[in-house]
């Protein structure tokens, strides 16, 4: 035993390190960690409040634009939400009041995203082949002839 004193010394030193680490560690574990599993539970609430919702849905647009919404919901675009072609509500309304003008995209590209005939779309979906389309020239705005909110086919 006498000749193994240095072994005990080094083992004691090791023990001290382990204890310091274990104690120090407890101060570093976040409070809500492990409440429901191996994660910080507080983060769930943080995620729920990470930012206010940007998209409001068509109903929220109808709060101010009731007539427009009525027209849309009666027509062929009734399933297309306002924010699909315009922009998220949050860009236009803040704290219940108008904060900026809603962008209006009158371009051919906007309509083409859905209605240009390309490989991939379901056959039954209304699509346009420009070359076969009356007066259709790339660059002409579709909405010159078609009413975007309630288009007639």
């Amino acid at each position: 035993m006498e000749s193994a004193r240095h072994v005990f010394r080094v083992l004691f030193l090791l023990l001290v390190v382990v204890v310091i680490f274990s104690v120090g560690r407890t101060f570093l574990v976040p409070k809500s960690y492990g409440a429901y599993g191996p994660y910080r539970f507080d983060n769930v609430a943080e995620q729920a409040a990470v930012r206010p919702p940007q998209h409001g849905g068509s109903a929220s647009c109808g709060a101010c634009h009731a007539e427009r919404l009525k027209a849309v919901t009666a027509g062929a675009h009734r399933k297309v939400g306002c924010e699909v072609c315009h922009a998220p509500l949050a860009r236009h309304v803040r704290d219940g009041a108008r904060s900026a003008p809603m962008p209006v995209d009158r371009s051919f590209t906007l309509c083409a995203r859905c209605h240009r005939r390309i490989e991939g779309r379901p056959a039954a979906f209304p699509q346009i082949v420009l070359a076969q389309h009356q007066g259709g020239v790339e660059g002409t705005a579709c909405i010159d002839c078609h009413e975007p909110h309630s288009p007639k086919l």
Binding site: S3, A4, H6, R9
Partner: peptide
Amino acid sequence: ALGTYDTSPEALEVDHRA
């Protein structure tokens, strides 16, 4: 050396086994 200066043959034998 952690303050111990034991280099007796027994201690060295302990080292060896360690």
